[in-house]
Design a binder for these strands. Structure first.
Lengths: 150, 150
DNA sequence: TTGTTTGCAAATACTTTGCATATGC
DNA sequence: GCATATGCAAAGTATTTGCAAACAA
């Protein structure tokens, strides 16, 4: 089981390195570490959240590098950017097709996997007018913890 | 036709005034004007966009008041806040159930009305775990103008 | 070696807060 | 008259930019 998990990470790392090469982007230790920390998390971190983590193993890294790196990752398609109504930006290392639920109280974001959501149709008028690149369902509400806390 | 249009606006204004009263919120000329400008627009304005407009008929209004007012409107439920990945916040005077398409190039937001989208089901695991308050579909892509401009 | 990346610092953008004055109710 | 709202200014947070030194290729 452990082996499979590692295999998955190795695979992602290889893919990551390939994408960097494709984009003429250098493989620095900072970038590698930031990438590893990002895919290691499921809390959809902001730059600061990730900076705090990365600093632990790489104390000299700057907030700035983490931020620029995440934006670069987003641009070259190795990271996602979560939709929402507030600040700061929240990133997503999970590129498998999925959707989100966000708690309006604690701002927690939870991944939702749904075949139905993946295949909702694009209305024909839209299909013909725009080029659709992405399609996501966003659920909003109150999570169990916050409901109990009331 | 013109009459119907005005009637719709009158209706909204009445509803707006009622909601303000319910929330113990005073009806100031600024608020009234900001509300009118907001429902008069379909470009999902940011505070600044709306401030520019409001200033034309009310030159002494401050950016600050516009911003605070929009946030208040959101809180009492007379305005929506558009989901997205960037800044600044974009508001929405249209409270009819609808969804959005956003152009990744020019950031334009277009309303989408779809019965199918309005009725997508909530996955049972989610239904049982969280209280769902809102459910929207977000499409992203390239609009006609931006495609031609390439 | 060469062009990119980093870390730092400063600048900008966006949002929020505090407070005296003005104003709706 | 009283409590809230406004306008202003300042502070706070988030994001972006410029640049010299460091580094991957």
């Amino acid at each position: 089981m452990q082996v499979f998990q590692n295999k998955g990470i190795e695979k992602k790392l290889d893919r990551f390195k390939a994408i960097c090469k494709d984009h003429g982007i250098k493989l620095t230790p900072q970038r590698l570490l930031i990438y590893e920390e990002l895919i290691n998390q499921d809390e959809h971190p902001s730059t600061d959240m990730l900076y705090q983590r990365v600093k632990e193993t790489f104390p000299t890294v700057s907030f700035d590098t983490v931020n620029r790196t995440l934006l670069t990752f987003y641009k070259i398609g190795v990271a996602g950017l979560v939709e929402g109504t507030g600040n700061p930006k929240r990133f997503d290392g999970n590129l498998d097709k999925h959707h989100h639920f966000q708690c309006v109280k604690c701002k927690k974001i939870v991944d939702i996997y749904s075949d139905v959501y993946d295949h909702i149709p694009v209305p024909p008028e839209i299909q013909n007018t725009f080029t659709i690149l992405n399609k996501t369902v966003h659920l909003e509400g109150i999570c169990t913890e916050c409901r109990q806390r009331e």
